[in-house]
Amino acid sequence: MQIFGKTQDNLWTLIAAPTIWAFHFLFCYFLAAYQCAPNADPFTRIGGTRLAIGVVTVVCLVLIGLIVRRSWREWRVDGGGTRNNQDTPEARERFLEFSTLLLAGLSFTAVIFETMPVLLIGDCR
């Protein structure tokens, strides 16, 4: 169903960005643990792991960036607005769009935070 001639938001569009964030978190966590859990050689550089995390981070940030762009546009079509206390399809749509935008912003920041360790720590110590 189309409302206002644009895509309708739903629960899936809402959770897309946090899902990418969760994937990024697990990817970094598993890869770093796989590399460092043996704890045998804490001073060996882990360039490959850092590069892999870097590439995945860029992909995740681009995807989340696209979600930010889309939700911003959808939300701005009707001039934005943050009143969500009406029982109408328009208000529901606006609520979903604005929530998606906020969640995508949060996910973008979180992915950057998760990547900071590989920028500052070059080995397993």
Partner: peptide, 26 residues
């Protein structure tokens, strides 16, 4: 509520992460 906490947390994270490898050097 958004910009200030993000900047403060990022600065603290940077500080803490910078400290870790230094404290654990050989």
């Amino acid at each position: 509520g958004c910009v200030f906490p993000t900047v403060v947390l990022a600065a603290l994270l940077f500080w803490g992460l910078k400290m870790m490898p230094e404290l654990r050097r050989p």
